[in-house]
Simulated scan of single mutants.
Amino acid sequence: MTSVTFKGSPVTLVGNEVKVGDTAPNFTVLANDLSEVTLNDSEGHVRLISVVPSIDTGVCDAQTRRFNEEAASLPGVKILTISCDLPFAQARWCAAAGIENVQVLSDHRDLSFGEAFGVVMKELRLLARSIFVVDSTGKITYKEIVNEVTNHPNYTAAIEAAKQAK
């Protein structure tokens, strides 16, 4: 399991650890209108999954805006941002930030995504900052779990991985 800290303090990641080469596990999260969204809903597409602890904090805000901007250079790639924020808060944040190219989804209800991908921070009931790329066949081709949750992920590597995935 990856060693992760939050503001310098170790946290425990729970759930099933996934690895590059694994078939991505399905999950159910909520869209801003409370409808259920699964990984299988975007089957046949490359998916870049950007995971943030809370959408309206500095690094999470920057991460989501960055992938929203990069979406134009990633034709055919579905970008999903997942956090444990309530769908209503996500909707307000997206409207204020002008987020239109990224689907922002909530794992607050039952941590389905977090447990399936092994990124639930047990002590905080939040998701650890991470990036996953899932190719059109459902295989995980890229994974980054950021060691210090308050740091930025490697945007360049994640974007390149999404461009290379088929």
Rank of each mutant, 00 (worst) to 15 (best):
L86C: 02
V20E: 15
G138S: 09
K122F: 05
F113Y: 15
A158R: 07
Y155R: 09
S35K: 12
V102F: 00
G8R: 10
Q63G: 02
N101W: 06
I55M: 11
D22E: 04
I99K: 00
R92N: 13
K7G: 01
A161Q: 05
K139Q: 14
M1W: 02
T38F: 01
T81K: 02
I55E: 09
R66C: 03
I49S: 05
F6E: 07
P25E: 04
L80D: 10
A71F: 06
I159Y: 02
E70N: 01
K7S: 11
I159F: 05
A91H: 12
I140N: 00
A157T: 07
K122V: 04
E115W: 04
T156F: 07
A97D: 12
M1Y: 04
I82K: 01
S35W: 00
Y142F: 15
T156M: 03
E70F: 07
F117Y: 15
V37E: 07
A116I: 12
S35N: 10
L30P: 03
D85E: 09
T23D: 05
R109N: 11
Q90G: 00
N147D: 13
F88N: 03
P10Y: 07
R65A: 11
S106C: 14
L80V: 03
V18D: 10
D107M: 13
I140T: 09
D135F: 01
N68W: 02
K139V: 13
S50P: 02
L80T: 02
K78S: 09
I131S: 12
V14H: 06
F88D: 08
Q63E: 15
P10V: 04
N154E: 11
A91L: 06
Y155G: 10
N16T: 14
M1G: 07
R92F: 07
S3N: 06
A72D: 14
V119I: 15
P53T: 06
